[in-house]
């Protein structure tokens, strides 16, 4: 893998670099952006915003609810225990367990979806720079088709341009 990236000290410069790369014909999905904080006020930081995550959480809740229902009612029917004159399947008390498992389902679904969507856990890719943790914003292109144009776009925004990979 080869790559070229610039490190920018402000989001404005990073935005310029992203605009420059787009103008030079680099497709949006090939531009890599990394920062140590969310920068949603900027166009480059607000991409990939759309998600079906809330619906998956709702699905998780539904699965949790069904699990809670079957766990309680099936258990009570399989091993009937007469308690304090209550019916064998006690829906009032079962609601508590069903509620807790519904919420747990939603929580687990949110976390699992995050892991899948954010592709975690994974080994730290080579296309990364520790300077990000010092507040720099990384804008780069992996396997650029036209290295010179990419470099020009990154340098135009006062980026500290770095290259990686054996072919460069």
């Amino acid at each position: 893998m080869t790559g070229m990236y610039g490190l920018f000290s402000t989001p404005e410069l990073a935005q310029q670099a992203v605009d420059g790369l787009r103008a030079s014909g680099v497709p949006e999905h090939e531009i890599t952006i990394q920062s140590s904080e969310p920068l949603e006020e900027y166009r480059f930081g607000s991409r990939d915003r759309d998600t079906v995550m809330p619906w998956i959480s709702v699905l998780g809740a539904a699965i949790g609810m069904a699990t809670g229902y079957f766990l309680t009612s099936v258990t009570q029917q399989a091993w009937p225990i007469s308690t304090g004159g209550m019916p064998i399947v006690t829906n009032w008390t079962n609601l508590i367990i069903i509620f807790e498992l519904t919420m747990l389902g939603a929580v687990f679904a949110s976390v699992i979806t995050l892991m899948f969507a954010a592709r975690l856990p994974r080994p730290l890719p080579k296309f990364y720079d520790r300077e990000i943790s010092n507040g720099k914003i990384l804008i780069g292109v992996a396997n650029p088709r036209d290295i010179e144009r990419v470099e020009r776009a990154l340098r135009a925004s006062s980026g500290e341009v770095r290259m990686m990979g054996t072919e460069l």
Binding site: I33, S35, R49, M53, S110, L114, A117, P121, R122, P125
Partner: peptide, 20 residues
Amino acid sequence: LGWQGTPKQWHRLESAMHMM
């Protein structure tokens, strides 16, 4: 876990936090 801080990761993290 190999966190890089891409916009997608930030959005998904914030969505997950909101849902939770």
